[in-house]
Design a protein around this nucleic acid. Sequence first.
DNA 1: AAGTAATTGCAAAAGATTTGCATTTAGAGT
DNA 2: ACTCTAAATGCAAATCTTTTGCAATTACTT
Lengths: 147, 147
Amino acid sequence: MILIKDKQIDYFVTLLHKASLKATPTRIAVLKVLEKEHKPLSIAILQKRIGEQKIDTATVYRMMQSFQEKGIVRRVDLRHTHAHYELATRADHHHITCERCGKIEDIPWCDLAPIVKKALCQSVTFTQITDHTFELFGICRSCADEE
Amino acid sequence: MILIKDKQIDYFVTLLHKASLKATPTRIAVLKVLEKEHKPLSIAILQKRIGEQKIDTATVYRMMQSFQEKGIVRRVDLRHTHAHYELATRADHHHITCERCGKIEDIPWCDLAPIVKKALCQSVTFTQITDHTFELFGICRSCADEE
DNA sequence: AAGTAATTGCAAAAGATTTGCATTTAGAGT
DNA sequence: ACTCTAAATGCAAATCTTTTGCAATTACTT
């Protein structure tokens, strides 16, 4: 019997093992969705997108927590009442969210390094900066047209 | 009888009236706390700080919502499980939050205008940007020393 | 192939935020 | 000052988001 290897799955398995996490089917499925959707997803949407193989909500929450600690996902605050998560394998980048319809557009770059550096230099209390958030909010073309 | 006018209260009353909001004692008390604490506060802390005159939680939530709509307060996401609010009368600025102890330091400036502009120019979907968030996270000196 | 610690599902709890409704109150108009 | 009305408040209950305890399952090490 010939086993056809799936490059993507291999990659996820390695990713998980490097992070000292077990490569379970559930986790692979979640990573696949995150990879495919390519944008910040809420826990609820994530759970829906998995499709057939139902995953308990608590499991997804725990997974996002461990993934975040290991740097596999990034938590994004889009001013909704709940958190969003996206794969952290991509380069640092940010988003513009439409205040009306919630549409998200990627900003595929991050020019914040000098600003972060300046903030650290001027800070009295902080010796290191480990992370930052930067999100834009606006009105998208189609929502603007609706008036 | 001589009434000693309170400049601060006068200011808050005007602020509220300009926003077409009634100047109730509750609202004045909340604004006083926000002014005094001078940093982003959670609903729970806000409620505690009011002291004597107890305010219902629902009232504070509704108040923050209307204040935000009128531009009196700004909502800040500090990666806690709940929102924080601060007076928006101050110039645009940001914060560094300690990932260990939650201490907040002000960054009293905002250099993001050119970056926001660049993002809007490059955007395909968005015609205007109305707001942005920028938060830093790090480890403060005293938490770093604890090791 | 067996053993163990990590992972999962389920149920329940805890925490954050919103809503409906009856009551009170600030501020406009008289 | 007095009246009136829409806005604001308190209370209770509902809803939504996230966390936790525990027993059963499973990936991976030896």
